[in-house]
Amino acid sequence: MEYDIIRGDIAAQSADALVNAAGTSLRMGSGVAGALRRGAGEEINEDAMAKGPVDLGAVAVTDAYDLDAEYVIHAAAMPHYGDGEATSESIRDATRNSLAKADELGCQSLVIPALGCGVAGFDLMEGAEIIGEEIENYEPETLEDVRFIAYSDEEYDAIRAATGSADQSEMTEAGESDR
């Protein structure tokens, strides 16, 4: 399956589902989770925490509330805060389970961040390569539009380089609100 690499604020995206880079507790703290919580409203954090904790690599789904999406898929690529870091296996599982859950929900579009590569401490280049491989190898049922989102220019460039997309000539801007 082909996908686009875009730069922007995940909370400003319009898609059937947005993926949250979550810890196993599903508590929405900083980074991607914080951006989604601010965009959706505090109810999303309460809803997510009520569905947790989940196993490392697992996903849970909430309503997207005030975001321009139907669902938020909370992908636990990292342990609960302070309980360790993301691993290649947890990133691979969280990515694969996010794609499968989006298909199960009948989603056609999905936006996914660099799971486990922020506060979870996993190397961005290696994580992006894993996520890119999982997206490319996934055989979708309903998914047609998958966007791998980066927040900063540095993150965007690293994802492009790690996924072999560095030859694309222009960066796609996608959402202007602050993270």
Rank of each mutant, 00 (worst) to 15 (best):
M1Q: 14
E2Q: 15
Y3K: 10
D4Q: 15
I5E: 11
I6S: 11
I6K: 12
R7K: 15
R7H: 09
G8V: 06
G8P: 13
G8H: 10
D9T: 15
D9F: 12
I10V: 13
I10C: 06
A12S: 15
A12C: 15
S14V: 14
D16I: 05
A17W: 07
L18G: 02
N20S: 14
N20M: 08
T24I: 06
L26V: 04
L26R: 03
S30M: 12
G31N: 04
G31M: 05
V32T: 07
A35H: 04
L36R: 06
G39I: 08
A40V: 11
G41W: 13
E42H: 13
E43F: 10
I44K: 10
E46I: 11
D47G: 03
M49C: 13
M49T: 04
M49L: 13
A50T: 01
K51A: 08
G52F: 04
P53M: 13
V54F: 13
D55N: 14
D55W: 10
D55E: 15
G57V: 13
A58Y: 05
A60N: 05
T62H: 08
Y65T: 07
D66P: 02
D66E: 14
L67S: 06
L67E: 04
Y71L: 03
Y71K: 00
I73M: 11
H74P: 05
A75D: 06
A76I: 02
A77K: 00
M78F: 02
P79R: 11
Y81S: 03
G84S: 09
E85M: 11
S88Y: 08
S88R: 06
R92I: 00
R92P: 01
A100G: 04
K101G: 05
K101N: 05
A102K: 03
A102V: 09
E104P: 01
E104T: 09
L105P: 07
Q108L: 04
S109M: 06
V111I: 11
I112K: 06
P113H: 09
A114P: 04
L115A: 11
G116A: 12
G118C: 05
G121C: 08
D123Q: 13
M125L: 12
I131K: 05
E133I: 00
E134A: 04
I135R: 00
N137S: 08
N137V: 00
E139Q: 06
E139R: 01
P140D: 10
V146M: 03
R147S: 01
F148R: 02
I149K: 00
A150D: 01
Y151E: 00
D153I: 07
D153C: 00
D157M: 02
A158F: 02
A158K: 10
R160V: 00
S165W: 08
A166P: 07
A166I: 04
A166Q: 14
D167F: 07
S169Q: 12
S169R: 02
T172R: 11
E173P: 09
E176D: 14
